Simulated assay, not measured.
Amino acid sequence: MYEQLDEVLADLSARLTRAARDRRSPMHTPAVVTGDVDARIMVLRAFDREAFTLRFHTDIRAPKAAALNADPRAAVLFYDKGAKIQIRARGTARVLDDAPVTRQAWADSTNFARRCYLGEGPGTPSNAPTSGLPREFEGVEPTDEQLVAAWPNFAVLMVELTSLDWLYLAHTGHVRAGFERAEDGSWEGRWLSP
């Protein structure tokens, strides 16, 4: 596999870049864990390999938004079964509801995707199975005008990574490397026992 830490960091960065761009990537939908010890699968929308940030989309009314505003610690778990590689990432999260990146993410989304933010807030109780969407939008793409009410519910969840753990699972013996972000933004790596 890899014998140099810089090769591992390059592999890690390439995998996260692909995960954000390719919806068929096994790492496209990682588990995101918040400080309230809750976990959920989310779609990775972007990875900035210079800033080492992950971008997700969320509903500002979701419990995770309140949890991250109270405690910004976040962990993200990626796994590629075929490659036998696990990436554990930790960082500081920010929920951005009206920032330039939020406006751009909204502009880049389709109306069909934006309609998710027209529904009831995540976790709202119901007496029957529900999408939470108003009936007129189930399976229907709303117009720009109909989506005006959705915009205030949309937010970007940005995670600035501070530590990374890369694990290659092999029958000959697992290989693991850990990286911590230095104050200057560089990554300091070391080999770890799996």
Rank of each mutant, 00 (worst) to 15 (best):
D97A: 15
V76I: 10
I60M: 12
L54M: 11
D71P: 09
K64Y: 04
R88E: 05
P72N: 06
D48G: 09
A39G: 08
A62F: 05
W106P: 05
V33C: 02
P100A: 03
A66P: 08
A67V: 02
V33Q: 07
D80E: 02
R90E: 15
V101N: 06
P100H: 01
T29W: 04
A93I: 05
I60N: 10
S109L: 08
L96K: 00
P30C: 09
A105H: 01
A66H: 15
T92Q: 01
H57V: 10
T110D: 00
T92C: 04
D59A: 10
S109A: 15
H57L: 10
F78C: 07
A65H: 07
R45I: 07
N69Q: 14
K64N: 04
I85T: 11
A93Q: 04
A70N: 10
A65Y: 07
A65I: 10
D108A: 14
L96D: 00
I60V: 15
Y79K: 11
I41T: 13
G35I: 00
V101S: 13
A66K: 15
L77W: 12
G35F: 02
V33S: 02
A83H: 08
I41N: 05
D80A: 12
T53C: 04
K64P: 03
R90F: 13
F56S: 05
N69K: 15
F56N: 01
V33K: 01
A89G: 08
A31G: 08
D36E: 03
D108C: 07
T110H: 00
D59W: 06
D38A: 13
A105N: 03
V32T: 07
T53H: 01
A99E: 04
R49F: 13
R90I: 13
A65W: 06
R49T: 15
R73P: 03
A70S: 14
P63E: 04
D98V: 00
L54Q: 04
V43R: 01
T34P: 01
T92P: 10
A74S: 09
D71Q: 10
V76Y: 09
I85L: 07
A67T: 06
A83M: 10
V32L: 15
G82W: 00
D80F: 00
V43E: 15
A70F: 05
A46G: 08
L44D: 08
G91I: 01
F112R: 11
D36V: 02
V33F: 06
Q104L: 14
H57E: 07
F52H: 14
I60Q: 11
V95W: 06
F52E: 03
A31K: 11
T102W: 01
R61C: 12
L77K: 06
V101L: 14
A31Y: 12
D71A: 11
A89M: 09
A39P: 10
P30R: 13
A66C: 09
R73H: 02
A67I: 05
A39V: 04
A66R: 15
D48S: 09
K84W: 02
F112S: 14
R40H: 07
I85R: 09
W106Y: 05
R94N: 09
R103M: 04
T110K: 02
P72D: 08
V37K: 13
R49D: 15
